[in-house]
Nucleic acid binder design. Structure first.
Lengths: 340, 340
DNA sequence: GTTAAGGTTCGAACCGGTTCGCAGGAGCAA
DNA sequence: TTGCTCCTGCGAACCGGTTCGAACCTTAAC
């Protein structure tokens, strides 16, 4: 392989001069700089990443720890990954992806061996095993998802409280007085998905404050089951006029269920979901929804991480916990309740 | 950070001895080996990846070049990535992910700077811009997807010809004599998706050889359109009794279309798709399908790549082009045609 | 008792970059 | 002419591993 020594030799200068000519970190005469660049181009010189990392203790690589939950919808995860990957490379970083089932060990390996300058954790749970490892690591970290303890890391998440309030307020404003909220299954919460609680509690409080009824239930995340559950729910609450879905499987199953009951939204039932626009497109769901904006969250996390890596924020600058406000994407599935 | 020098010092030996003690590449007395290991453990030593790469010219990282097509279904892509990532780490490799829209430049950067020991290309097109770059690189490469020219790389793909034959033969064996094949849209083919042709041509030949009718058409990959197109198709060919779908959007839209026409599979229409089991689960599709096995293909590609990296196959060993035979996953959507 | 063989360990060089200190030369003022 | 500064470029050291050759010490063989 062609090294900077070869370039220097071809240009008739010392290695150090070639390095300075290419990096611009010290003044070099115009003439020499041009000769060096020319030589580098002609020889097809590309600096060796390992050597550079060794010399500068910078890898220009960001670690991305994704955990694939078998019961989670793939499109959303891929959007997170894309948001992170694209933003990273716009900032001049590559991505080291770990989809490791046992995340903490992988994280430790990657940070200990200095393969990365920083780390993004996706899908962070309430008590996440990866967090202690990340805090002990010398590299900065950014999370997507809100853990119980946010010290030492920058955190980005959707504002689930606000999402819950918005969903209820939206339907209440249109005159609905009895609503059903289908959350994700309990095992998602047990796994650390506290966001399910956050949305549900905020929704319940809002409903209580406004004096309307909200039936909150957990639904399965598997397809045939959730369909049956939705039927049962609609049977059990015949006077409910609004349906809130914080459960992607339920949203995907609902069109069929409505069809089978010969109902349509918003004429018979107003519906609001909570999922990404991409998800809506993939399943061609006609329901208005709170946009979960995975790409945006991924981008924000990387941006902040890069700022920390490059020292644009002081190492002791306070850590950020930022909630992005929910956008309600109107697909026309809400209206005043039927006159009855 | 703690270096091997620190470990050596703590154990009272030379750096080289510490290195040999840890790597086992030369004999070291039991006593010293134990002392060194002990010291490494106590100090929390982890070798610096950059330094090791520099010394050994091995990074133990595999580059993964995924191209996200906006009109492609995310779940499948994620499965490829998972298959690659999991197999890689079982073999002791990490993954450098590039989702670069402009793949060739990213590939060149990664290989030139020696960030990776080898490369896996996903979603390879008939004439793929990344291939010349890969051939010029010093690292070996493995592809998922069949390009026009396979020289210099190992190639893995589903056997689309066999898939086409199987689909037609399966229905013919059950007595069907007029079939419809919905392929992916033409722009997928123009982009280099020759596999669409491969399946379609094989299906047409098989139908011709068996003296039955096959209407082959291209369908959109967007949701509202493909639904209308399916309706139009069924209108246009009222005597067709079998439907073959090499188009994921069509498969996802079909349940609704059937419902709207008050048809059901297999009683009124026999249906076979071509998509992954994961895809079927995500959309809870009740149709039998040719399994596209993305995880399996990803795994095969990494396995072979690792063999080449580690020199288990001679550098001049012939390159592999392997087609995996299609599995037909029976979900009970095929039967003899209705008596009529 | 000398020599050969074998097992251990050490020191030095190397991988390919970056960076620091210094030296040589030009330009300018005193 | 001397003295100073400024501009360029060079050499050497360093980052943290790995690996080669040689030296040392036992032990065995003749």
């Amino acid at each position: 392989m062609v090294t900077i020594g070869d370039v220097a030799h071809a240009a008739g200068v010392a290695r150090s001069t070639a390095s300075y000519a290419l990096s611009g970190r010290r003044a070099v005469s115009d003439e020499v700089r041009e000769r060096v660049r020319q030589a580098a181009r002609e020889l097809g010189y590309a600096p060796n990443a390992g050597a550079r990392a060794l010399a500068t203790s910078q890898t220009r690589v960001i670690g991305l720890l994704a955990q694939f939950m078998p019961d989670e919808f793939a499109p959303a995860m891929l959007q997170y990954i894309q948001g992170v990957a694209n933003t990273a490379r716009d900032s001049g970083y590559d991505i080291l992806l770990s989809s490791d089932p046992e995340g903490p060990a992988a994280l430790k390996r990657i940070t200990d061996s200095r393969m990365v300058d920083g780390v993004v954790l996706l899908n962070v749970a309430e008590h996440d095993d990866r967090l202690p490892v990340l805090r002990a690591a010398p590299q900065p970290g950014a999370l997507v998802g809100l853990p119980g303890d946010c010290t030492g890391v920058d955190v980005f998440d959707l504002d689930f409280e606000e999402s819950g309030r918005t969903m209820v307020a939206h339907l209440h404003a249109r005159g609905h007085r009895e609503l059903i909220l289908v959350s994700q299954p309990e095992h998602v919460i047990e796994r650390g998905g506290a966001y399910v609680w956050r949305l549900q509690n905020a929704a319940l409080e809002t409903a209580a404050a406004r004096g309307i009824t909200l039936h909150a239930v957990f639904g399965s995340s598997a397809q045939p089951e959730i369909g049956r559950e939705l039927h049962a729910l609609l049977d059990a609450h015949p006077h409910a006029t609004g349906l809130l879905l914080n459960n992607e499987a339920a949203a995907a199953a609902l069109p069929t269920v409505l069809h089978e009951r010969n109902l349509s939204a918003p004429d018979d039932l107003s519906v609001i979901g909570r999922y990404s626009d991409e998800f809506a497109r993939t399943f061609s769901l006609p329901f208005s929804s709170i946009e979960s904006a995975p790409d945006r969250l991924g981008r924000m996390a990387v941006r902040q991480l890069v700022r920390r890596i490059e020292g644009e924020v002081a190492a002791d600058a306070p850590y950020v916990v930022r909630f992005v406000s929910p956008d309600l994407v109107d697909r026309g599935s809400t209206a005043p309740p039927p006159a009855d």
